[in-house]
Each structure stands twice: as C-alpha cells, then as structure tokens.
Design a protein around this nucleic acid. Structure first.
Lengths: 152, 152
DNA sequence: GCCATTTAGTTGAGCGCTCAATCATTGTCG
DNA sequence: CGACAATGATTGAGCGCTCAACTAAATGGC
C-alpha cells in the first residue's frame, strides 16, 4: 500500500453530501424555471448576460468561453443554437483571421431583458432569501477561495 | 408595473457569480476525474455508493432516486446503463408488483471499491484542503439550509 | 366492490455536453 | 526565412438528461 486513502470523517461526509444536494437542487430548480419561462437553459442565459455586459455587446468566442466557464467546444455548439434562434450572430474577427466575434442581436437582448426579472427573482428566492447576510458573506468567501484553488 | 424586480446588488452579484464559477468548476473537475479513472460520471458513482450503503446492497428504484436527488426517468436511464455494464441488476419487488429493486452486483461493488479512493482524494484536494475548518462548518450549515429551503 | 386517482417505473425524442479529431492561422526560434 | 508548435474555433459521435407520454398496479372514496 503506497498511499493510505484519507477518507472523509462523518462531519466531512455530511458537509459534502449537503453541498451536493443543495447545489444540485438549486441549479436544477433555476434551470427548470428558466427553461419554462424563457425557453433556454441556464448556460445559454449566462452567455447572453455576458454579451449584454460587454462593450458593443460582443466578445471573442474564447473570451466568452472563459467568462462563462465553458469549453470552446461547448460554446461553439451553444453559439450554433443561439445563432439559429437569432439571439446572437457570429462575425469574423478583424484582428485575427482565425477568430470569431459573437454579437448579441436586438432580438437576443429583448429575450434576455424579458427573462432577467424572473430569473433574478428565482435566484433571490432560492438562494439569498434563505441565508442570513453573514452566510451570504461566508458563501462568497468560500466560493472565491474554491474558484481560485481550482483554477490552478 | 405590478411588481418591481428586486435586482441583485453588487455584493450579491459577486457572491452569485463566485458560487456559480466555483460549484461548476468543482463538479466539472470531479466528474472529469471520475470519468477518466473509473469510466463513469459522478451521478453513476453516487448511485453505486447509495446501493453499497443500503442493507443487502439494494434499494427500491424510487428510494434510490430520492437518495441521489434524481428524477425517476433519469434513474431509469442510468439503471439501464449500469445494468448493461453488469454493475447492478434489477429484480421484481416482492411486496409491490409495480416496484423494482436495484441490487449492486459484486462487479459493481468491486468497481466502486476501486474508484472510491481516487475520488475521495479528489474531493479532499479540491474542496476540504482549500477551506479552513470554520469554512467547512459554514458550508455545511449553508448547504443544509439551502437544501431544506429548496425541498419545500 | 368498483371506478377514478395516485404511485412506480419505463420509454423515446430531442437537446446539451464531452471528447477527440480536424482545419486554418499565428507565433516562435534556430 | 521556414519548419513546427501553439492558438482559435468548429465538427461529429456518443452519452446523459429532460420532458411528456405511457403501462401497470395499488389506493381511496362512495
């Protein structure tokens, strides 16, 4: 036996399972609400949000992939769908002939504007309303720590 | 205007995005590791874990669905795959003729036993090692609160 | 006791994702 | 300069999931 597994103690076990249950339930709920009310999954909503915040409502495909924590492949497939829906369009990048720029269309912006209030309400109801201000702060620190730790 | 949207303030926005980034990165990483090392997604691993802990290494399909936070449909599809792999089998329930009982096979148990150390190591490395004991405790309380809030 | 309702589980279509392979362009360095 | 690696993005196969529809059996009034 080269390395002894450091098993989870009962407290860690409980924490891990609670986290799994909660984060899955939260994301499933929001995803379902968004699908029902706006006809798109949460991942697509996020893409539209990032584009809407970018200067000129446009981003290079790779920047968009990084911003949404998505693989390039995933973003390509998603962009194809979003383009077919008329919510974004893809243009050639003027400075890099390999590159593409995703641009949020007016239709896309309108769909996003229609979806946002309901979704934000959902995030508030299912996340922020359930936690104390102190817990929200703790969750932010924990998440930022984990994110930093994972990207290394 | 019937109801004014309660938008997220900058702090809430930051918390929400950090949570999204962290939980997605964490689950993606663990999923990829499990797929690479054990040839199964995390959801399937969880199914095998729950079965391994149940008396007689067996559970009713609906209990298993509840335990893994899965829809019945999802579990049915997963069970079909796991059965084809020889890791579980499904038997008729003796007390309810509509029911099915999922049973972990010896092969399934062996695969789980082989996968567990690596996966636990991953959970430790990517989650517990990054957080202080106090943060782990906070995360448990937050998760349990959210889970309770969501199931209502 | 019977019919409507509920519960258990499965199925198929369709969608989103991953992985690996691919193509084109750009960067690098001897 | 020119070869080779690195980067940007897409593609197709295959898998897992959702949703809605479905079958079958159990339950609950009246």
């Amino acid at each position: 036996m080269v390395v002894m597994t450091r098993w989870l103690d009962p407290d860690e076990q409980r924490t891990w399972r609670a986290f799994l249950t909660a984060s899955r339930a939260l994301m499933d709920t929001l995803d379902r609400e968004l699908q029902r009310d706006a006809g798109m999954p949460h991942a697509y909503y996020e893409i539209l949000v990032r584009l809407s915040e970018a200067p000129g409502r446009q981003l290079r495909m790779s920047e968009l992939a990084d911003a949404t924590g998505s693989s390039r492949s995933r973003l390509s497939h998603a962009a194809a769908r979003l383009e077919a829906a008329g919510w974004i369009r893809r243009e050639d990048c003027p400075t890099d002939r390999r590159g593409q720029v995703a641009v949020l269309t007016d239709d896309g912006f309108a769909v996003l504007a229609a979806a946002a209030p309901g979704h934000v309400e959902g995030v508030r109801r299912h996340l922020f309303d359930a936690l104390s201000p102190a817990q929200v702060d703790q969750l932010r620190r924990i998440s930022e720590t984990l994110a930093a730790h994972l990207e290394s």
